[in-house]
């Protein structure tokens, strides 16, 4: 279905990640209105109560705010969005470091390899950089 969710992990946590990613990547702009809980639940094919819970947590983190009667909006606080962006990037890097360590790579080897692959990929236009 529309959202690719993993049934082995709590759904609300995955919804939070997905909306964070949509905000950071510019799918939603600061100040944009979010669809209603019901609409989002249908789009994602998830339980509306679960969607509600995820949005409440996003609200508590400050990334989303709600205005009585008019709905939920993406924060206009771009520093908050930058912070989340850095946090998401950090998680990705940590995950990569962990895997490289499992493969027996040192920090220097990892950095050298990264540099090399980045250059190659840029040259071959295989990544959008």
């Amino acid at each position: 279905m529309a959202w690719n969710l993993d049934s082995q992990r709590p759904i609300y946590a995955q919804i939070i990640e997905r909306v964070q990613y949509d905000i950071v990547s510019g799918h939603y702009n600061p100040g944009d209105k979010l669809p209603s809980v019901r609409e989002l639940a249908c789009e994602a094919s998830v339980n509306p109560n679960t969607m509600q819970k995820a949005l409440s947590e996003l609200e508590q983190s400050g990334l989303v705010y709600s205005q009585r009667t008019t709905g939920r909006f993406i924060t206009k606080d771009t520093s908050c969005i930058r912070k989340i962006r850095e946090e998401l990037a950090k998680q990705q890097v940590l995950e990569m470091i962990r895997r490289m360590k499992q493969l027996g790579f040192t920090k220097e080897e990892t950095l050298t390899l990264m540099d090399k692959i980045y250059e190659e990929a840029t040259y071959e236009h295989t990544i959008g950089v």
């Binding site: 993993d6 049934s7 082995q8 992990r9 709590p10 759904i11 609300y12």
Partner: peptide, 15 residues
């Protein structure tokens, strides 16, 4: 609750 099952057991309901 299905979310509790996923959180506590780390598996889907199907599994």
């Amino acid at each position: 609750s299905v979310e509790d099952i996923r959180m506590e057991r780390g598996v889907s309901i199907d599994t």
